[in-house]
Amino acid sequence: MTALSEARLGDGDRRVRRVPHVRLGALGRLSERRGWAWLLLLPSLVMILAIILYPTGYGLWLGLHEMRLTRPDRDGFVGLKHFIAIADDPIFWLSLRNTLVWVVGSVVGELALGLAAALVLNKDLPGFKLAAALVLLPWFLPNVVAGNIWAMMLDPRLGVINDVLVRMGVLTTYRAWFAEPDLALAAAMAVEIWHGFPFFALLLLAALKAIPQDLYEAAACDGAKAWDQFVHVTLPQLRMIIVASVVLRVISLVNSPEILLILTGGGPGRSTQVLSLYAFLKAYKEFNFGYASALATVMFLLLMLFSWAYVRLSNVMRD
């Protein structure tokens, strides 16, 4: 304890400063000012305005105009013409129906599989951490690769899936999965489910791990069976994350036509044509920007409506 007397750090006159006061530079000073937070935000706000909000506003505006790169002579304001045309467009309604089937089927499949995977992987056994990482891999694969691998595997002549199914006796002959209108959407959905289920597995596994263990112990004391535990302890704890991840997933499924564009291009016929694909092809193939923008606007409105209703509904159901 006598060492403490050595805390007389100053030798001699203690009034002489040994460590000078700090003086900040100009940038340091600036960073202490009140507006610094906004200065930090400025670049991102500018970017968001310039490359997101402006284009989006422009997109909404385009929906009210005629704009075809192929027929520049017709450009101009047309009011709600496109929207009226959309209401009368049978392809729109067909695409809407396909979108519904596609999104609902994919989300339900991905959620079910993701939940199953999360439950299976939520064990403290050797190797399960690695497995949890491997299961995530499909989600990180580009659509182009995922789509083409499956196109290869589902090939009518040389596909491994046909081979496996025939060997197992499920099928008698090889099938052309993407050539039959009734089958194409289902096959595409299977691919999408494989591609997207890790997203749910990831979030649900994290949420499962966060459930306090004593909740289960309490339930076990009450004599709850495994199924009861799942229904009364696990599911309620996962509720919020399920609600949130479903919204996110629905939004990205509605908005992105990539996997269908790669797998089927909308065919055969229009049996796998979804709204986003329809709008994209209008823009990409026909350069009919006005109509495509109007379609995108309708999609956006439908999504807003869905998100609002869905969040509303899941809040109501909780009470």
């Binding site: 050595e6 750090l9 040994r18 000078p20 006061h21 700090v22």
Partner: peptide, 25 residues
Amino acid sequence: FGLRMAGVGVSEREGFVTRAARTLR
């Protein structure tokens, strides 16, 4: 850290830190 911010030289820093460390065991 604080000494560096105040622009104290390396050898002086060494001295201060050693002394304070001894004080506080």
